[in-house]
Design a protein around this nucleic acid. Structure first.
Length: 704
DNA sequence: GTTAGGG
DNA sequence: CCCTAAC
């Protein structure tokens, strides 16, 4: 079996379009987010969702608790086995190295989820291909590792395609199980320029051609220091990050894992009005490991070739993998990259024929992890939980879409295996898988993303509560902030189909063990295991909702190995969390969280009484505006209800009263005002033939 | 969107 | 505090 490992550097970045990005985000200048250049955890959000969908199918509760995954490493093994006789037409794309014909390169629309909402990325255009082949798949802001395995002992793909199904299958049964493994180790660095994403023309092109950057051709050193914000802020094309040159020896690199830990920094001075929370992203200052800044890497096990500075070169190398041996670098990286597959790789090299000629792709796709940019959001203490949620929804939605786009993009890239005319490539598998993922996530997003805010593990249910009120007024406490992410149950993507789960699940057995990237240092894997989007740091006892399951400390490598059969390895906690909330039976809490009870303070009662005395009992909106305009959490309905209870309270004996005692003086005023305004209403209603005495006004001096 | 009232 | 009818 031939193994291929592609190592691609990323010279450019592009933010994929995010079709579903909430409109609100676009227009809001106050909302600025920046995907920090270093890593972050991963698209574990995406992966989690996808994993859930893939593993749980329709039963998925679709609740991803991104807050407490103790098991950070979300290793997704997407393995699909496809039979040659499968009714679905196999897509064979012939890539002509010298004459890349666009018409032959792209997947058909059908490959994309119909309802994904994503435009089909034109990843297969000539330029993109070239870019990708030279490690410049500029659109991918992340690094990745792709492992390709192919069994060269099998008949050539084209032969296979030409041959009768039965024959082929008989000869090499497992050859036709197309299993793509893509080991993605993603590091989306500097996904976005310092400017607001919303402001950037992100939606124009999915995959802009950023190949033009001559710098990208230099594959030896970083041209741009992405650590400098200036490098991005000044970028004329916000959506395209300045190129980062790829470095060949990144196979063993271990990046410091950063959490997608939104940090909320309260601004000292804030406007009282929370209506326009100033969400700002603050650049994070963390230790950076420049040596590990490779954005996008692929490992070409196949030819043991690291990234080449020249796309054409890589292309050729991919086609004819013979001349790779002489390159120590390549050898080194190859051996380093894959220990398991080394044998197969070398054996395959004995084959003089171009790999693709005889290649019958046996590829497994595995999305190991994605790293998402660190996100800093700066908001005033007076911002409400609700506003925080909304912005998170926007951000996460945007982000998720970005990730999806990336995945799709990556998939396409992975499919673009260097080949010559005699070789065809099967693209369906990865697309199917990714389509499924995209479909899942898209459905969730389109169905509405719900973000819950956790404070020390407890859900903050009152959206009207300000951050300060919630105890988030200082950085220390901010550390206790967490989030839950779940789809709105109403439109939950329960209908998502993962029809071919079985195929996927079985694929691994058929194929040989895949060469894997050397297990990360366990020491560092710790970081890797951090949950995505986890921002809860100090909440040992966080759990009121019991949505969370026990943490799993299994290391990433273990997970990978242990669940080799699983299409998607979802951290147990996530699975459980998902299962806890059955999608089919959306609980009320899901539909609309009941606001937390917020007893009225005496001061509030005072204000309410005063307002009612002045305005009466039938103008609650006015009362609200007059006395509680700045209390976002008090609606006029609340005030009305409170008045109702006040009247009731005033009428009952003090012994029967509960809660914070209301001064009798106030209660008396309540009764007086209530009596008065009731009387006034009675006067007006039935066209009162009996005019009330003017004395009423005298009795209520407050009516001035 | 408000108001009123039952739950 | 929720829900809903009625306006």
């Amino acid at each position: 079996m031939l193994q291929k490992r592609l190592d691609y550097g990323s010279c450019g970045h592009h933010i994929p379009a995010m079709p579903h990005f909430p409109k609100a985000a676009k227009g809001k200048r106050s909302i600025r987010r920046k995907f920090e250049d270093n890593q972050m955890c991963a698209i574990e959000l995406l992966a989690t969702v996808a994993g859930k969908l893939l593993t749980e199918g329709e039963n998925s509760s679709s609740l991803a608790d991104i807050t407490r995954s103790s098991n950070p490493t979300v290793v997704k093994d997407f393995v699909k086995q496809e039979q040659i006789d499968e009714p679905t037409p196999i897509k064979s794309e012939f890539l002509d190295q010298d004459n890349c014909d666009e018409s032959t390169l792209g997947p058909k629309e059908a490959d994309l989820p119909p309802d994904s909402g994503f435009k089909k990325p034109n990843v297969f255009d000539k330029e993109s291909i070239i870019n990708s082949t030279r490690g410049e798949f500029g659109c991918l802001p992340v690094s990745e590792s792709v492992e390709y395995k192919e069994d060269r002992s099998k008949s050539p793909l084209q032969s296979r395609l030409k041959s009768p199904k039965g024959e082929i299958i008989e000869n090499c049964p497992d050859v036709y199980s197309l299993v793509d493994q893509m080991d993605l180790d993603v590091k989306p660095s500097a996904l976005v320029s310092s400017g607001s994403i919303a402001e950037a023309p992100l939606y124009r092109n999915h995959f802009p051609s950023c190949s033009s950057s001559p710098k990208c051709r230099d594959g030896t050193k970083p041209i741009v220091d992405r650590d400098d914000d200036e490098n991005f802020s000044g970028c004329a094309r916000p959506s395209t990050i300045t190129s980062k040159v790829y470095r060949p020896h990144c196979i063993g690199d271990r990046r410091v894992r950063k959490l997608l830990a939104p940090k909320f920094r309260h601004k000292g001075e804030l406007s009282n009005t929370e209506t326009k929370p100033a969400f700002r992203i603050k650049k994070m200052c963390y230790t950076r490991q420049r040596t590990q800044r490779t954005l996008f890497k692929r490992r070409r096990l196949f030819d043991h070739c690291s990234i080449s500075s020249s796309g054409e070169e890589i292309f050729r190398e991919g086609i004819s993998n013979s001349h790779l041996k002489g390159n120590p670098k390549k050898e080194a990286s190859a051996s380093h990259a894959t220990s398991h597959g080394a044998n197969r790789a070398s054996s395959s090299r004995t084959d003089q024929k171009p790999s693709f000629e005889s290649a019958d792709y046996h590829v497994k796709l595995r999305i190991k992890s994605f790293r998402v940019p660190e996100l800093f959001i700066e908001i005033p203490e007076t911002a409400t939980i609700g506003s925080l949620k909304r912005n998170l929804v926007i951000t996460l939605g945007e982000y998720t879409h970005f990730l999806l786009s990336w995945v799709l993009n990556t998939t396409g890239t992975s499919a673009i295996v260097p080949t010559d005319r005699s070789c065809s490539l099967q693209l369906k598998v990865p697309y199917f898988i990714l389509s499924t993922v995209m479909e899942a996530v898209t459905a969730i997003l389109s169905g509405g993303l719900h973000v819950g805010v956790l404070l020390q593990g407890k859900k903050v249910r009152d959206d009207n509560k300000t951050l300060r009120q919630a105890g988030l007024s200082d950085d220390d406490k901010l550390e206790n902030l967490g989030f839950t992410l779940e789809p709105n149950s109403a439109q939950a993507p329960q209908q998502l189909t993962v029809a071919e789960d079985r195929h996927l699940l079985d694929a691994c057995d058929v194929t040989q063990p895949l060469a894997r990237i050397p297990p990360p240092d366990h020491g560092e894997s710790d970081n890797t295991l951090r949950p995505i989007l986890t921002s809860i740091t100090n909440s040992p006892e966080s759990d009121l909702d019991s949505d969370h399951s026990p943490t799993n400390n299994m290391s990433a490598p273990d997970k990978i190995t242990g669940s080799s059969r699983a299409i998607v390895v979802v951290p147990p906690m996530n699975v459980e969390a998902l299962a806890v909330v059955p999608l089919r039976k959306p609980k009320r809490s899901e539909l609309a969280q009941r606001r937390i009870r917020r007893p009225f303070s005496v001061a509030e009662v005072e204000a309410l009484v005063q307002a009612v005395e002045k305005l009466g009992t039938g103008r609650w909106r006015d009362v609200k505006l007059r006395a509680f305009d700045d209390a976002k959490h008090r609606t006029y309905v609340d005030l009305k209800d409170k008045w109702k209870t006040l009247v009731h309270t005033a009428r009952i004996s003090p012994q029967q009263r509960r809660g914070e005692p209301v001064p009798q003086e106030l209660l008396d005023r309540v009764l007086s005002a209530h009596a008065y305004w009731t009387q006034q209403q009675a006067k007006l209603q039935p066209k009162p033939p009996v005019p009330m005495a003017e004395s009423a006004h005298v009795d209520f001096p407050f009516l001035l």
